[in-house]
Amino acid sequence: MSTYYFVIVGQNDNPIYEKEFSTVNKELRKEDHRHLTQFIAHAALDLVDEHKWKTANMQLKSIDRFNQWFVSAFITASQIRFIIVHDNKNDEGIKNFFNEMYDTYIKNSMNAFYRINTPIKSPMFEKKSEIFGRKYLLS
């Protein structure tokens, strides 16, 4: 049983992509954490900015926790932040997921019709994140 909340945050702290991955069936879910995970991710933004100076790595690993929730982050060269709020440890999977999403994000930003810092609406991107989420986070 695990849930992941993945969000891409742009340079001006604006969300540009959001997705939830969960092994828990929608009907069976006791409570809706969506508002909470958003808050946790938002609260972690400052910590991301703090951590990014301490390492040359793009992977920032686990940077924050709140009750049972962990926050892992990844920061791209152009200061786009990938954040995952999750409730169980899965460092290897998250690392792979971030790397694959980074690749996908770069491909998407090469599209001439996509303007940086705007919400990502590409169906291709959606499909890829679905695939990688199932492959690395939920398996």
Binding site: K107, N108, M110, A112, F113, S122, P123
Partner: peptide, 10 residues
């Protein structure tokens, strides 16, 4: 057209 995805309104 590599990387390009046409937006639905075009």
């Amino acid at each position: 057209t590599e990387f390009v995805e046409l937006p639905p309104d075009l």
